[in-house]
Amino acid sequence: MHVRSSLISLAAAATACASNPDPRGRSIEAVQRDGHGGWISITPRSGAPIAGELISIELQGIRVLAVTPQPGLVVVPKAAIRSATLWAWETQHGRLLGWGGLGTLSTATHGFFLIFSVPIWLLATTLTAGIESTASQVEYPADDWGKFSIWARFPQGLPGGVGDRDLIHQDRSPPASPVPGAGGGAGVDAGVDAGVDGGPSGPAGEAAGP
């Protein structure tokens, strides 16, 4: 089999993979640490599709910081949604395509047997990359809204007192008073922490993280 046709097949496999429309291109490592919601695309029963960051899933609807069709915070009633897809992170299926490409090229060392090994490589690469490209997707109606909510900026729902503008640029209220018994170690400014309970700290009953 020609190298060219093999590469064309791999290219076809690449195009067959699901494409993540999230313009932020959030890697797994980024998603692990940042606090933003995943990218959701909603197809309503009527009207233009809506796409943007998933803010929260609530009883009255899906709250999205939309980029399209109009920038702004929108709440889409669940009953008005025909389908929706959420991309939680940028998948790494491209690595599988690269892996498969190198593997396919390596069959040049297989002599006659490449007529078997090339199709096996192409098939394995196409299947695994195709599956991997959808690994970060959550889809409605196949999945329930609960599966969407964990990928929202606010999995607990939009907190009371947080206004639309706060989602883009929040005006922080002045720091509260320091917490009594907070320890006051180097760099500690417990008074800035939201909702700090000023109880004394101590080793008893503690469970350590890593």
Binding site: Q170, A182, V188, A190, V192, V196
Partner: peptide, 20 residues
């Protein structure tokens, strides 16, 4: 610590009340 807009508020040691 990140705000509701997910902008960085502060880096350092934190003591957080579970009730909040």
């Amino acid at each position: 610590q990140l705000g509701a807009d997910r902008a960085l508020v502060r880096v350092g040691e934190h003591r957080i009340a579970m009730a909040d």
